[in-house]
Computed example of a mutant assay.
Amino acid sequence: MNFVKFSPRLWFLLGFIGCCSLLGAGAYMQFVEELEPCPLCISQRLAILATGIIFLLAALHNKGYKAYAIGAAVSALIGAGISARHVWLQHLPPDQVPECGPGLEYVFQHFPLTETIKLMLSGTGECSQIEGVFLGLSIPGWTFIAFLMLAAFSLLTIWLKAKTDESRG
């Protein structure tokens, strides 16, 4: 299969499907495997959702593919930064792990929005717990890789479109 012949819209649709798959995996882990997401997990899901929405808009809209590609890449790289922080927290020595905070439901009801966002992006002691490992990487480690792949996938659209235009021109 020649990937160069893919239209940007189809490429973005595939990116959207990838984001939906990641969100589905997160929902499975939460509701079937009963792994309660920590603040950083929820922040990563929001970054996946934002990236997926950008991919969907790009697939539906037939103009400005470069702007959508860059927007999706930025969103994915923000998510990668959150995942990197999560992995870093998981590898801290026990005496350097931050204290566990109140539950997110309590935080949303009683804290100002700026404090809630700070907590969701910085993480708490519960974020340092490793709930599962696959091939030597924790869930946030795999999420980090997924974000990097989504960013690369998005930016690859620009290169593929240029190659397609070159071969036609």
Rank of each mutant, 00 (worst) to 15 (best):
M1R: 07
F3C: 05
F3Y: 11
V4E: 04
K5P: 11
K5N: 13
F6N: 14
S7P: 12
S7K: 15
R9M: 08
L13H: 10
F16S: 06
I17A: 07
C20L: 10
C20K: 07
S21Y: 09
L22W: 12
G24I: 03
A25R: 12
G26L: 12
G26S: 09
M29Q: 13
Q30Y: 11
F31Y: 08
F31C: 06
V32H: 03
V32C: 00
E36A: 08
E36N: 11
E36W: 09
P39K: 05
L40Q: 05
L40I: 06
C41L: 11
I42W: 06
S43P: 04
L46D: 00
G52K: 01
I53C: 04
I53W: 04
I54T: 03
L56D: 14
L56K: 11
L57F: 05
H61Q: 15
H61N: 15
Y65W: 12
A67C: 00
Y68G: 02
I70Q: 05
G71I: 01
A73W: 01
A73F: 01
V74H: 10
V74L: 10
S75Y: 02
G79R: 03
A80P: 06
S83K: 01
A84Y: 06
R85E: 08
H86A: 06
V87E: 11
V87W: 13
W88C: 08
H91V: 13
H91S: 14
L92Y: 11
P93A: 04
P93V: 05
P93S: 02
P94W: 13
D95F: 12
Q96V: 05
V97W: 14
P98N: 04
E99F: 01
E99V: 00
C100V: 15
G101R: 06
P102F: 09
P102D: 12
G103Y: 13
L104M: 05
F108D: 09
F111C: 02
F111G: 02
P112E: 10
T116F: 07
I117W: 12
K118D: 09
L121Y: 07
S122M: 14
G123K: 09
T124F: 13
C127M: 15
G132N: 06
V133M: 10
V133R: 13
V133T: 06
V133G: 03
V133P: 04
L135N: 12
G136L: 11
I139C: 04
P140F: 15
P140S: 15
P140G: 15
A146C: 03
A146V: 00
F147W: 11
M149D: 00
M149I: 03
A152Q: 07
S154N: 00
L156S: 12
T157G: 10
T157E: 14
I158Q: 14
L160S: 09
K161P: 09
A162V: 14
K163I: 03
K163V: 02
T164I: 03
S167D: 00
G169Q: 15
